[in-house]
Write a protein that binds this DNA or RNA. Sequence first.
DNA 1: ATGGATGCAAAAGTTTTGCAAAGAA
DNA 2: TTCTTTGCAAAACTTTTGCATCCAT
Lengths: 145, 145
Amino acid sequence: MSHNMVAIAGRLREAGYRVTPQRQLILDSICAQGGHVTPEAVYEHVRTIAPTLSQATVYRTLHFLTEQGILTITQVDGGRFGYELAGPEPHHHLVCRACQASIELSHATLRPLYHAIEAQHDFAIDMNHVTFFGLCADCRHVARR
Amino acid sequence: MSHNMVAIAGRLREAGYRVTPQRQLILDSICAQGGHVTPEAVYEHVRTIAPTLSQATVYRTLHFLTEQGILTITQVDGGRFGYELAGPEPHHHLVCRACQASIELSHATLRPLYHAIEAQHDFAIDMNHVTFFGLCADCRHVARR
DNA sequence: ATGGATGCAAAAGTTTTGCAAAGAA
DNA sequence: TTCTTTGCAAAACTTTTGCATCCAT
């Protein structure tokens, strides 16, 4: 999935914010790495292109873009955060503990659970991202041997 | 829910580990606070009883007891960790973003989802703890006004 | 030109580690 | 006595913040 920089730039400018090379680079980087990216990974990647771009800018930009609804936070193993482009519909991930593979999970799969929880507990889950950890197909088969 | 210190102590000794006052205090503290406790909260609480007990010991003990299957890690808002006694069956939590209330969720509620994911993706989730964030019944009603 | 954004460096917060001393078995 | 565990302090990491400067608009 690619991002539409023109549309994003428009949204930002309309809200009175600026479209800087740093912000574009950081977005490009997240996109290039396919989402689920930690601040550190963004920094390391972006640094190869713009060596003076600071870590502070990475953190500030990630927060900012999340606040603007352009990125969303995902949980990453070890309690750290990952970021990725916010899609129009929430979606989720399965992450393999063995090989780190990341599999997309449609929101449709979780919807029944959300509804069940709402019915049982009158509780409205508002997470647009859930990450489940476990073993992927390949790694399960290896483990079984 | 209370913990059975005699049984836990036996398990540890059997495995060649020692049952120290610090370990007992830390377990007591987690139990007293009802689970979902951060390392910091454990430290602050235990400190009032044993002022010389160090943060390092808290961290080491939490890791150790988790490794021994006596505690489990739960996710806490903000990417930090919480700990609680490991029960015989996995269970989960709903945490209210507004009032921080923590509601227990039986594993039965999640089982259909786990099965669906296994059927669809041949992926075996191995999380014995999932935390969903959202709004609890009370806070939803307040928000609605 | 104007005010938002960046870079640098220092600070703040959290978790880990080395090592000598203490203490459970 | 033996070998695990603790306390202390320093180190390692990650994230945040202050402030002068820069630059997108």
